[in-house]
Amino acid sequence: MTTSSFDRWLHRYAVFTAMIALLPIGMGALVTSLDAGMAFMDWPTSDGQNMFFYPWLRDFHANRDKFVEHGHRLAGSLIGMLSIGLVVLTVRREPRRWVRGLSIAILAAVVLQGLLGGFRVIADARVAALVHGLFASLIFATITVFVLATGSKWQRGGCDSLPTKPISSGMKSLAIATPLAIFGQSLLGGLVRHLGLALHEHLGGAILATALTVAVIVASCRSGQAWLRSASIGLSMVLLFQLVLGAGAWATRFGFPPAGYVAVQQAPEQILFRTAHAVAAMFVLMMSVQLAVRVLRLNWLGSGVRFERAVSIPVQTSTLETCSKFAGGPA
């Protein structure tokens, strides 16, 4: 695959899949905010009816919790179908074995995610809901990596020519540590949302994750690589948005005495801020993963160029000596 002949349709389908993945993510976050995870006591049926024939729209006014939970189930089914299509399209059109394997891994993860959601209902286990939400963020990030790998800029790392040197070890370490810290912060946030635990740990984790994220943003902007700089700009935007949403989620849940604001549980503004905060966390993780993958890709390309240059000189010298021998020149 080259920058001029990359498969546009596969890439577009992957982008579409990533966009549709936001439906079950958003609906799932809303389910948690409404505490509607047990709106139905059965799975995969809904009140004993086939999931796809359940009169879903009837619940729009009659039962808000059932409407949201069933919408989450339908959205999950949709992303499952799209994941099957992604595998079929990738196997038929993508020559790179690891990309084909990635598409299969995405499908397997989506299937496992559906089973986790079902287990959460059958066992009525909030811990399973926590794992379900965290796994969704990993799936979303993986789909966007697939989008990146099938894009036109992957071949040369967003450059007109191949990078001439690998990325520094410090930059690589920072790029890898940042999504790990953000995922840990998401875990702490999940404990707050699902189990009412680790509130102060979540605040401390936010400081660490923000510090690492700012550091990797600054390092990316100073790297001189446009591919990294564009990702760092996106990461800085979602980080700022997430911090604002976090403050809003805190105020609407616990109140803000200096302003005389008293939190009302399950008020519309509380549901809105808490849901948006959970979804934005997945975007922060996704963008940090995107940046890390770009760093590793540029490092791999730079290392490859350096290796080729290192081995080219002795090969050329050996060839000249051999030609000289055949021509009767000095040995």
Rank of each mutant, 00 (worst) to 15 (best):
S5A: 09
R8Y: 15
W9C: 10
V15Y: 04
T17C: 10
I20S: 02
A21V: 08
L22G: 06
I25P: 01
G26H: 07
M27G: 12
L30H: 03
L30D: 01
L30I: 10
V31I: 10
T32E: 04
A36D: 09
F40V: 09
M41D: 13
W43T: 12
M51R: 13
P55F: 15
W56Y: 14
F67A: 12
F67D: 11
V68A: 05
E69N: 11
H72K: 06
G76K: 02
S77W: 15
L82V: 08
L89E: 01
T90S: 11
R93A: 01
R97F: 13
G101M: 12
G101T: 11
L102V: 09
I104P: 08
I104F: 12
I106E: 06
A109G: 12
V111H: 07
Q113H: 14
L115K: 08
G117P: 01
V121K: 01
I122C: 07
A128V: 10
L134E: 08
F140S: 04
F140T: 06
T142Y: 07
T144D: 06
V145E: 11
V147K: 00
L148S: 09
A149M: 14
T150M: 02
T150E: 01
K153C: 05
G157D: 00
D160Q: 09
D160C: 03
L162V: 04
T164E: 13
K165T: 14
P166H: 05
S173M: 12
L174P: 03
A175L: 07
L180E: 13
L180F: 14
A181F: 14
F183V: 12
L188R: 02
G190V: 01
L195S: 07
A209M: 09
T210S: 12
V214H: 10
A215R: 08
A215C: 08
A219Q: 07
R222L: 12
L228F: 00
R229D: 09
G234S: 05
L235D: 02
G246A: 05
G248C: 01
G248D: 01
A249C: 03
A259H: 07
G260K: 12
V262A: 15
V262S: 14
Q266S: 14
E269C: 09
Q270P: 03
Q270D: 05
F273N: 01
F273R: 00
A276D: 03
V284E: 00
M286A: 11
V289G: 03
L296F: 11
L301V: 01
L301H: 01
G304C: 05
V311L: 06
V311Y: 03
S312G: 05
S318Y: 05
L320S: 05
E321W: 04
T322R: 13
A327H: 10
